[in-house]
Nucleic acid binder design. Structure first.
Lengths: 109, 109
DNA sequence: CCAGTATTTAACGCCTCGGTTAATTAACGG
DNA sequence: CCGTTAATTAACCGAGGCGTTAAATACTGG
């Protein structure tokens, strides 16, 4: 079985799943409600939801015959935490800090 | 052809590729150098690099018979920008802010 | 219990992914 | 030019992803 980050990133790699997450940012929703905007079959949506659940990106509850999905953003924190290590490579402010630190280091020598 | 975010996220979904990026955070490196820590074949590494390049996560330059890879973090900024929309769902401070705003809204009514 | 609605599971097809080995290309250096 | 080293491409394979339709399951309400 793959590591958590791989599971999270591959869950996010599908545009339908990202759209589902975006929809869930508004409110909880049932499978049928989530399926409505897409022209793919219900079973396909059902599996996307399983992938998202497996990645911890949604949780689900049952009420009568409806299964409601709810956004769980914690895995996104993990993913951003991983990317955070690279922020210095794209953040202008940190670039400047970096240059500053290099200058200081040169001064030391 | 898939959208940029999908390409980026699926590039990040492989642990070997994430390890390569981590290695490149230190310094540029040749294909052989990048392959060294892994016990998979050189062609496999070569394809991982192609995937990373395709996602814009590395750039490559040739010097003699060596092809050097260099980290390009800009796509990570795009990816975090996408996740940023969900920060309110996991950030404690923003949770509190959210609760605060809700209280204010209730007061208004 | 039965009919109806919501959702999942099963079984299938197609395509991509990640690995392999063998062959090819690119560039250097004697 | 030839041998060597670096890297990629070609051809193949097995596993898994994402879609389908058909069948099964879960639950409600009369």
């Amino acid at each position: 079985m793959p590591d958590r980050l791989s599971v999270i990133f591959s869950a996010l790699a599908d545009p339908t799943r990202r759209a589902i997450l975006a929809r869930l940012a508004d409110s909880e929703a049932t499978v049928n409600e989530l399926a409505e905007p897409f022209d793919i079959s219900l079973p396909a949506i059902s599996r996307h939801l399983k992938v998202l659940e497996n990645a911890g990106l949604i949780s689900r509850s049952r009420s009568a015959q409806w299964r409601s999905s709810r956004l769980e953003a914690a895995p996104l924190r993990e993913a951003t935490a991983w990317m955070e290590r690279y922020r210095r490579y794209w953040d202008d402010n940190l670039d400047r800090l970096d240059a500053h630190l290099k200058r200081i280091q040169e001064d030391d020598q």
